[in-house]
């Protein structure tokens, strides 16, 4: 039983955007760094902030606040970039702040309710109560791959 319990547990990185708390699978996270100025790329959607030099790699940076439509971001000392490994790509995601690494029991994760057409929930894996807060468990791959990030997963679609 113990082993099943073990495998049903997930280690997650939690971060905040505004008032909301999100969490993602820690295995996708390569590193966390402060927000630096990026090189803007013309003719790309607003949430793609630009590209960054990460030890010689050109890494695109996405603002999750813009991507999720949570208002205009302000960048300050606490703004962080989570560097993610998605497939064979390295991508940075800007969030307001990183809070914690937590272990969640899979059993406590509740499926996200249907919001109807008001909210696209396809990238939300579930909701989980944690120390009287609610965490939104995000499928980060689904969230940031899409038409704008074409080459990420659905390269064939245009």
């Amino acid at each position: 039983m113990a082993s099943i319990q073990q495998s049903a547990q997930r280690e997650l990185l939690t971060f905040t955007i505004g008032e909301e708390e999100y969490c993602i699978d820690i295995l996708k996270v390569q590193e966390i760094r402060g927000y630096d100025s990026v090189t803007r790329i013309a003719n790309t959607p607003e949430f793609i902030k630009g590209v960054l030099n990460l030890r010689g790699n050109i890494v695109p940076i996405i603002d999750l606040r813009l991507k999720l439509g949570l208002g205009t971001p302000t960048y300050n000392e606490t703004t962080v970039v989570i560097i993610l490994n998605i497939g064979d790509k390295v991508i940075g995601a800007v969030v307001d702040g990183v809070s914690d690494v937590i272990t969640l029991d899979a059993a406590v994760i509740r499926p996200a309710p249907e919001f109807g057409s008001a909210l696209d929930t396809k990238y939300i894996l579930g909701l989980a109560p944690h120390e009287d807060r609610m965490l939104i468990l995000v499928d980060i791959e689904k969230l940031i791959s899409g038409r704008e990030m074409l080459a990420l997963s659905d390269a064939g679609v245009e």
Binding site: V38, T39, N43, P60, A151
Partner: peptide, 21 residues
């Protein structure tokens, strides 16, 4: 394209002296 995709009018990127892209 290695981490992103092809962008119109842009052939690639480089890193200049100060480390900026």
């Amino acid at each position: 394209e290695s981490n992103f995709r092809k962008v119109d009018y842009i052939a690639g990127a480089t890193i200049l002296g100060q480390g900026q892209v």
